[in-house]
Amino acid sequence: MLQYVLRRVAHLALVAAGVVVVTFSMLHLIPGDPAHVIAGDFATQESIEGVRRRLGLDQPLPVQFARYVGRLARGDLGASFRSNVPVTRELGLSYPISAQLAVYSLALATAVGVPLGVVAAVRRGTFADLATMVVAMAGLSIPSFWLGLNLILLFSVRLGWLRSIWGGAPADYILPSVTLAMFSLALIARQTRSSMLEVLTQDYIRTARAKGLAVRAVYYRHALLNALIPVLTVIGLNFGYILGGTVITESIFSMRGMGTLLVASILDRDYPIVQAGILVLALNFAVINLLTDLLYALIDPRIRYE
């Protein structure tokens, strides 16, 4: 087990190195010079050269890369090209917002999605099953930007119940969490249904039922717990997805999360922020994957990693 964890961590380091190289190369492939953005549209060539020197962009690419890696090795993420703000502060402001959004929306999605999936599985083939799954499919199919805008129109403009601009209060997470939860909810409900179905047909459940255990106990203690394992993967994957993929929801609700920060920084060619941000998201994704896999082993004693 320890060996497995070590191997996975080594693997993670490899992926991180890959992300560093690929991000750096891709950023420099994008046309548009950061110095132009910073010095402004009307800047003289001299101003642009000045900015380039200040940011070290006048150096050859390999030198820039070596410097970046050197700083990274020392744990120095640098400062934003645009504002001189340390990258750690920019990310430190954005990450918690995205992380909370991810937690809330996944909590909501799990709280609704798992029961829906169980209902569908237990009543397989009935109208309840069909209805539940169509609802789940709807969640999977609704464009989040459209949903978000309409939630604002309904709850903020027409009804005035919820604030439309993000102020960091817990209530401000409701609409964006609902917007994002739809997609995960659908995946979780479907996963729960199918793994419940699989578990329900297995021998030990039949045995338990035959032994006369109360129906409820069969479902909860045995079936659901086992069925939840694959659901965990879906939740884990979605956590990564929400952290990095919420650009639109974040911008509609004026949240300065990872998505809006990175998109703005890509447009500004603010290399230090983009490099660090993508690295953080990639590591995040890898660590969550690792944790889900380990959690598997904990919940299900049948799983052993060599």
Binding site: V15, G18, V19, V22, M26, L27, I30, G32, G240, Y241, L243, G244, G245, V247, G259, L262, V263, I266, I278, L281, A282, F285, A286
Partner: peptide, 16 residues
């Protein structure tokens, strides 16, 4: 490696 990039951001960079 590809999976570890946040999807829509990857698309955004490619389009950029």
């Amino acid at each position: 490696l590809m999976l570890s990039f946040p999807g829509i951001l990857l698309a955004l960079v490619i389009i950029a």
